[in-house]
Design a protein around this nucleic acid. Structure first.
Lengths: 214, 214
DNA sequence: ATTATATCGATAAAGATATACCGATATGCT
DNA sequence: AGCATATCGGTATATCTTTATCGATATAAT
């Protein structure tokens, strides 16, 4: 593990490698080459090698990388070993889906509980997690030292929820509301922008259909 | 509107501008400057100007851009006027949330119906949309000429669902399963990778906490 | 009318990211 | 043993993206 200042682009691909490596069957060969990974994931082999080199140098010519070591290194660099407790504000369909999703623990995240302004939603979910009134957010975040929050409320309420989160000591926000949030500069906002995702699909589609016509 | 080969980076920011412009109150000034947009969205003003220039050249010095025109141009370039009918495979929490979400129509998308291998889920949702057995996917896609599909099933089933979609004539796939999909090269897969999003949050957090210590 | 200012679009420079190339090395084959 | 081959890591090059700079222009103020 050597990690120093990984670029955003690399940081976004590393989890993909990790996911792929974890998905390999138990009886797969002990070692894997960058070439193989590249083919499987549809990337360039040089890029894979460069990305992996930014994490560790344990590839051997003609042999490749030892899968188990690579997984360990990636987990270490990505911080998947330390558990990050996270809360969700908004217990609608999306909020509940995120709260219930088991897969986050594979990434070192633990969705602790959700908060909603509608107090009738208060209580335990099917999966045994608590939904609390929004009024308790600050108190509970401080208590549990929560540093990560998810915003799953409609756009109109997103900024005020965001402000409340910042006040509660949250440092990183995963925002699902389709709106730009204003935050102090030490707070990170990552926008999960559906519009952005959809545009990529739609513009690909337009290209495809145009090509067929011409 | 001039659109020719917009870069991915630009394509990802355009919806953000559109979203922001639409959110302006009705009594806001008729024109807006790149400087203002940049400040509101936390971007560089030159970047905003360049991005907008890639769509149209209707900014006037000292005046700025006419909001309504800009919205029209952006909608045209992004293809938000043609409605893209879309189906979802997987009617679990996530699938249902996506099916119910009203906001997609703002982006020119219409979530038509969902499909699930579990036939007990078949029927109408609260919002009046149909859930069908997966076995009907191909027939219904062909009938309705669906070109876009959403994968909201567990990783293990994602590849087979994907194959089925391709067979059904779908050209663009929005994949929520944490796995790389193999597809023919004319099919676009956009991965909504939670791991990737989370990594960015988590690595920011690590940096923040390290800074405080030193 | 002249000057000051905000803002534009275009071009140039800088920075980030991806690709190509090459020498080194570990294995398998003759 | 010696050669062919797959694969690595590093350096160099090319491409893509962002940021800086500048002359032009439309309005407002003097």
């Amino acid at each position: 593990m050597k990690q120093n200042s990984l670029s955003k682009a690399v940081l976004e691909r590393l989890p993909v490698y990790l996911q792929y490596l974890r998905s390999l069957p138990a009886n797969a060969p002990e070692n894997i080459s960058a070439t193989t990974i590249a083919n499987e994931l549809g990337l360039g082999e040089v890029q894979v090698r460069k990305d992996l080199a930014s994490v560790c140098n344990l590839g051997r010519p003609r042999i490749g990388y030892m899968v188990s070591c690579l997984i360990n290194e990636l987990e270490a660099v990505l911080g998947y070993n330390k558990i990050n407790d996270t809360i969700i504000v908004g217990a609608g369909k999306l909020g509940k889906a995120l709260l219930a999703y088991e897969g986050f623990k594979n990434y070192g995240f633990n969705m602790v509980s959700a908060f909603d302004i509608d107090e009738s939603k208060t209580g335990l979910t099917e999966t045994g997690k608590n939904i609390y009134p929004l009024s308790e957010l600050k108190k509970r975040c401080k208590e549990m030292q929560i540093k990560i929050g998810v915003i799953a409320v409609p756009a109109e309420q997103a900024q005020s929820v965001c402000d409340l989160m910042v006040e509660s000591g949250i440092l990183a926000i995963w925002n699902f509301a389709p709106i730009h949030l204003n935050v102090p500069k030490n707070i990170l906002v990552h926008n999960e922008n559906m519009a952005t995702s959809l545009v990529l699909l739609s513009s690909h589609l337009t290209e495809q259909l145009n090509e067929r016509q011409s």
